[in-house]
Structures are given as structure tokens and as C-alpha cells.
């Protein structure tokens, strides 16, 4: 009798609990995987710093180059940090989707009753938070190197940063989705990293339409906050609306593309086969 009732009803776990645990274990997974291979992270941080050093020395000793003409050193630090963060956001997502599909764990994530979105969100948010800690350390290092100091008004930075990075995740979802369907397009991932850099050096002042591009508006606003010392409240309302619109818009487009890829992958049976 007892056995039967156990089987037929299953263990009933409240939906909220399933969602919370699905989110939490993925959050934890991000941490565990990051800490298990600290050298991966450290070496990429070192590379990031060396690249920055190259840019900085170039600007300093070559002086009056085109780069310094269009940007201040503070602006370069902000832009560079945003670039590394957006590369992280993008490649974290696209590589993760590819790897998990390859390992067969993506299929397992799709089996959660909470839905794939909860599980994936847990991982992405966790990974971004952990990476941000290193990013801050990196910024401090860059400030020490250049003797230029940025404003760390977190209340202003965090919301703007979220909507600035949203398009990077949008692109990550779109490209990750393509990789699910078409496989073996990792070479393309690298191209996207340079596209992201392009997006962050577009001179928005001279090309107003460029503010509609992913991340451009947020990039400009973050410079005003971190380099210019302005707070969120001092920013023009229409700029913030544009930030929100592009942030949500590009993320939504990316998610829609991913949704399409997911349907195709389900139809062709590609979620777990590589």
C-alpha cells in the first residue's frame, strides 16, 4: 500500500522549492567550476591586464594618437573594463551552452521541472557575480597603474551596468542558439568578441544613431558615472530610457533567437548530440 502511494504521487516538492533549488544549485555550480580551475581565470585576467598595459603605454608614449584624441584615459579604463565584462558575458553563455550540449548536461538542465530558464539564470547570475569581483580587482589594478581614479558609486553603476550588459547576453543567447543548431561555429565566437569591441569604441558623440547599437548608450553613461563623477539621478531621462529600451530590446531579440534555435534543436534532436 505504502509503496504504491509513494510511486503514484511522486514526492511532492512545492514548485517554489523546485525553482529555488534549481536556481541555487546552478549558482553554486558557477562558483564550483570557477574555483576548481583558478588558473584559467587568473591567466585570462593576466592577459587582460597585459593588453590594457599595452594600450596604456601606447597612449602615454606615442601621445597625441588618434585614440587619445577621442578618449580620456579614464574613459579607456571604463571602456576596456566594459569590453572584458561583455566578452565574459557573451562567451560565458555561448561556450557554456556549447560545452553542456557536448557533455550531455544541457539535456539534464532541460529536464528540471522548474524549467530551463531558472536553471540557466542561476548559473549566469552566479558566474557574473563571481567574475565581477575579479573585474573590480582588475579596475583597481588599472587605476594603480595609470594613477587615474574612477568613481565607484555602486548605486548608480549597478543598474546601468545591468542594462548595458543585457545586450551582450542577448548576443550570447543568439550565438549560443546558433551553435546548438549548426554546431562547430566556435571560430565565429572569436569574431563576435571583436564586434563587441567595435561597439564599445563607436564615437557616439559624432554618430548619434550609433546610440541605438547594443551597449553603446550604456557605455557612454557608465563613463559619465565612473569617469565624470555623475550620479544616476543627474543623467538625462531620455538617455536612461534609451538605455532601458536597447538593453531590454537586444536581450529580448537574443532570447527570441535562442527560442527559435531551441525549437529547431528539439525537432532535430540536437540538444544533446554533438
Amino acid at each position: 500500500m505504502k509503496r504504491r502511494s509513494w510511486s503514484s504521487s511522486g514526492r511532492s516538492v512545492p514548485t517554489a522549492m523546485v525553482r529555488w533549488r534549481s536556481f541555487a544549485v546552478n549558482f553554486k555550480k558557477a562558483w564550483l567550476l570557477m574555483k576548481r580551475y583558478p588558473f584559467n581565470l587568473l591567466s585570462s585576467l593576466l592577459t587582460m591586464y597585459l593588453i590594457f598595459l599595452g594600450i596604456f603605454l601606447g597612449v602615454k608614449y606615442l601621445g597625441g594618437t588618434s585614440l587619445s584624441a577621442v578618449d580620456t584615459l579614464e574613459g579607456i579604463i571604463v571602456g576596456y573594463s566594459l569590453w572584458t565584462l561583455s566578452i565574459f558575458a557573451f562567451s560565458d553563455l555561448s561556450w557554456e551552452l556549447t560545452n553542456e550540449a557536448q557533455m550531455g548536461t544541457l539535456e539534464q538542465m532541460y529536464l528540471t521541472p522548474a524549467g530551463f530558464a531558472w536553471a540557466q539564470a542561476g548559473y549566469l547570475i552566479g558566474d557574473l557575480l563571481f567574475f565581477s569581483v575579479f573585474e573590480v580587482a582588475m579596475i583597481v589594478l588599472m587605476m594603480l597603474t595609470t594613477h587615474r581614479y574612477l568613481h565607484f558609486d555602486l548605486v548608480s553603476i549597478v543598474p546601468v551596468l545591468i542594462f548595458t550588459l543585457a545586450p551582450a547576453y542577448g548576443i550570447g543567447f543568439a550565438v549560443g542558439g546558433l551553435a546548438l543548431v549548426y554546431k562547430r561555429i566556435q571560430a565565429f565566437f572569436q569574431v563576435v568578441q571583436f564586434v563587441l569591441m567595435g561597439l564599445l569604441v563607436v564615437p557616439v558623440n559624432r554618430m548619434p544613431w550609433a546610440r541605438l547599437l547594443p551597449m553603446s548608450e550604456g557605455n557612454a553613461l557608465l563613463r559619465q558615472i565612473m569617469a565624470g563623477g555623475r550620479s544616476l539621478w543627474q543623467l538625462p531621462g531620455q538617455d536612461l530610457i534609451l538605455l532601458l529600451a536597447t538593453g531590454i530590446g537586444y536581450l529580448a531579440l537574443g532570447l527570441a533567437a535562442f527560442g527559435w534555435a531551441e525549437r529547431v534543436a528539439r525537432r532535430r534532436g540536437l540538444l544533446g548530440q554533438y
Binding site: 529555488w20 544549485v25 564550483l32
Partner: peptide
């Protein structure tokens, strides 16, 4: 152990 916790957690078990 981490694997067990992870996969069970996907189903709300923990």
C-alpha cells in the same frame, strides 16, 4: 557529492 547535490537540486531535492 557535488554532482548528486546538483542533479537532485534540479528537481528540488536537497
Amino acid at each position: 557529492w557535488e554532482n548528486l547535490e546538483y542533479f537532485a537540486g534540479l528537481n528540488g531535492i536537497g
